[in-house]
């Protein structure tokens, strides 16, 4: 039995793009040669700015995006699911094991269904339960675990605030008893006072239900608090990956350093200036050759020799992986 729940090997995902019907078809590489192993029971964080490919990677692991090269393997207790060769029958089985919590709790819930129906829908679609009583019992059970009032089950989503809605989304994701959850920016739309509540709930459920999370976020301080291990993505590549304490106390890649220094400090006297990165993240349609970060890197050499470097993670300290170019450039 493997200690990992998900292994991603040399994964690339590209999309076809055509500017207009006369122009040539292009391929956009959204995710490029990614290798990660997600340990069972871990809270795996994925951070990066918009356009870095974190959502695409999460969706590829769930089988919602086509895999171009490489593979994704999900290790269940009895068997493995290979997402590259999975057929539709296996996919149905896989959906029970791996679920997604969305970002916007206002868009994710149908306004015309009661909370009970929303949470029960996966059970009915996946034909997990056999009778209405059984379904109701499962719904009540998971709703209580997500700290929803049983009163609430009869109401419609519009009656709830953002935090409560997010708890409904979580209950729906967990009702099929999955083992692996992708939480894609699941607290980004919430107010800070509510955000802490949802993060605590996710943590608590992780222990109660033996869950493994892939937690996608742009907010480094949130990731630092909840995740055990963090991977930093930039333009489709992972540039650094380490246990979260190690990563936040000892960042090695210039991009990670810049990200960390960009978080505005709540201490007004701490005016330490952010390492200002020049410009913006380049378009994925036309990524820089070699080290993708070189166009914004403060250490890039004037002769542009980073253009010929092949990106690859190296283990600089136990479990601390940094992109090759980032190891030497500091």
């Amino acid at each position: 039995m493997s200690e990992n729940i998900v292994s991603v090997n040399n994964l690339s995902v590209s999309f076809d793009y055509q500017e207009n019907f006369l122009s040539k078809k292009q391929k956009i590489k959204a995710v490029n040669n990614i290798n990660i192993k997600i340990k069972k029971g871990s809270f795996f964080g994925l951070v990066g700015e918009s356009g870095s490919g974190k959502t695409t990677l999460g969706r590829a692991i769930l089988g919602a995006n086509k895999i171009s090269t490489g593979n994704v393997i999900f290790h269940d207790d009895e068997r493995d699911f290979d997402l590259t060769t999975i057929n539709s029958k296996e996919m149905k089985e896989y959906r029970k094991k791996a679920q997604l919590i969305f970002q916007d709790p206002y868009a994710a819930l149908s306004p015309r269904m009661t909370v009970r129906d929303i949470i029960a829908e996966p059970l009915e679609v996946m034909k997990i339960t056999n009778s209405r009583e059984e379904t109701d019992a499962r719904v009540r059970d998971i709703a209580a675990k997500c700290r929803l009032n049983l009163e609430h089950l009869r109401r419609f989503p519009h009656a709830f605030s953002g935090g409560q809605r997010q708890r409904i989304s979580i209950a729906r994701a967990l009702v099929s008893n999955p083992k692996f959850i992708v939480a894609d920016e699941s607290v980004a739309a919430l107010d800070v006072s509510i955000q802490a509540d949802i993060l605590n709930l996710l943590k608590q459920l992780q222990h109660e239900l033996n869950l493994t999370y892939l937690f996608i976020s742009h907010d480094l301080s949130v990731v630092a608090h909840v995740c055990d291990i963090v991977a930093v993505m930039y333009l489709g590549h992972i540039v650094e990956m380490a246990p979260s304490r190690e990563l936040f106390s000892n960042p090695k890649h210039p991009y990670t350093k810049a990200l960390l220094s960009s978080i505005p400090s709540i201490d007004p006297e701490n005016k330490s200036k952010a390492i200002e990165l020049e410009g913006e993240i380049p378009s994925a349609m036309n990524p820089p050759s070699g080290c993708v970060f070189r166009t914004r890197c403060p250490h890039a050499s004037p002769d542009g020799k980073e253009g010929n470097i092949e990106m690859r993670l190296e283990e600089v300290e136990p479990d601390h992986w940094v992109d090759r170019c980032g190891v030497s450039c500091g």
Partner: peptide, 10 residues
Amino acid sequence: DVTIQAQVIN
């Protein structure tokens, strides 16, 4: 994004 936010704040 945070890196852009830092630029705009400065």
